[in-house]
């Protein structure tokens, strides 16, 4: 058979576009939400306060790539695993690499947040990090994520050795599990309503990562293979529809809840006057753009791809990933931005 045996070309441009867009998103978000120094109080250094959302964005994208590549065997379909073996072998290596980047960014985030926690200290020791993780849920969550992603990397190595005999559902499950600890400790943490906003936030993260990851993995590995694409894209399209609806509903719910619940801000003007509100609006714009691009792929390109015709899919998918990267960058700032 033709595709088997030949090493597939990996398109890194899609990944590069997404990372660049995420960095742009972080910088936009930081510029929008920047607050001046406070008189008399030790300042968090600029490098740390920009470094945290930047690292958070890379952390999120590492999660996206890892989960996306883990989902790829399911998108390709079990019946195609023989044909797709060269592609899947690449995906397995990518999952391990992604999981290791994920672990590293989690540890860097832990160090940066410890530095933010003690703005006065010039140096950070192991004791400081232990203090931080001991006293703050966010620190514990990062340690849990580190453990889970290391486990994911180990599982990935096992899959490299044993191939698809280790079911792809294992890394998918572990990857999705590793997404859960961090949102629990963020804004949504709290009281009775906190439970609702927390579940909503978890759903938001899960759907956004699965959606972007699936698209990114296809963009990196499947675009050159029309046979596999014809099978995978319709499956992804169904996943994407669900994810779009879930992430839109949960994102709106959480963003609005954050503003409505703030006793110091009037909800409706707050959406336009506060940095938080503006970031929410920017993300809604991103969502609209992604939905439009996705709709074009779904209704214009997909029928032709199913007939295995040539299309300009790569361009459209790259554009969609670009906007998704931007949304992740904004999210990294939004997750920490105060409503004021």
């Amino acid at each position: 058979m033709s595709p088997a045996g030949t090493a597939p070309r990996v398109r890194y441009t899609a990944l590069a576009c997404t990372v660049a867009a995420a960095i742009a998103g972080v910088l936009t978000g930081v510029a929008l939400s920047a607050t001046g120094p406070v008189t008399g109080v030790a300042d968090v250094s600029g490098a740390v306060s920009v470094g945290i959302p930047l690292t958070r964005a890379l952390f999120d994208l590492a999660a996206v790539v890892t989960v996306g590549l883990a989902v790829l065997p399911v998108l390709v379909g079990a019946d195609q695993h023989r044909t797709a073996e060269p592609v899947l072998a690449r995906a397995r290596i990518g999952t391990v690499a992604g999981a290791l980047v994920w672990t590293t960014t989690a540890l860097v985030l832990l160090v940066l947040q410890t530095a933010e926690f003690r703005p006065g200290a010039a140096t950070i020791g192991l004791g400081d990090i232990r203090d931080y993780a001991g006293s703050l849920a966010a620190g514990k969550a990062l340690l849990v994520v580190t453990g889970l992603t290391l486990g994911l990397a180990g599982l990935g190595l096992l899959r490299i050795r044993l191939g698809e005999r280790v079911p792809p559902e294992f890394p998918i499950g572990l990857g999705l599990l590793a997404l859960l600890p961090l949102p629990v400790t963020g804004h949504a943490a709290g009281t009775a309503l906190g439970d609702l906003t927390m579940i909503s936030m978890e759903l938001h993260v899960l759907s956004a990562v699965a959606w972007t990851g699936g698209l990114g993995a296809m963009a990196m590995l499947l675009l050159g293979n029309r046979v596999l694409l014809a099978g995978a894209l319709p499956r992804f399209s169904r996943l994407a529809t669900v994810c779009l609806l879930v992430s839109a509903a949960t994102g709106l719910f959480n963003g609005l809840a954050e503003i409505v619940l703030n006793p110091a801000v009037e909800p409706l003007p707050g959406l336009f006057t506060t940095a938080y509100g503006r970031l929410v609006l920017l993300k809604v714009l991103c969502l609209g753009a992604i939905a439009a691009l996705g709709a074009h792929v779904r209704w214009r390109l997909l029928p032709r791809i199913e007939r295995r015709e040539h299309t300009a899919l790569a361009t459209w998918v790259s554009a969609e990933l670009l906007v998704m990267g931007l949304a992740f960058g904004l999210a990294a700032v939004l997750a920490r931005a105060p409503v004021n």
Binding site: G190, V260, P263, P267, N340
Partner: peptide, 27 residues
């Protein structure tokens, strides 16, 4: 699930500021 979330959002808007807060502390 979506319907449940929308219902939750509506309930939240009704409750307004009276609802217990979560997130950043506000002075």
């Amino acid at each position: 699930r979506r319907a449940a979330l929308i219902a939750g959002l509506a309930a939240l808007t009704l409750l307004g500021v009276a609802a217990p807060a979560s997130a950043h502390n506000v002075l």
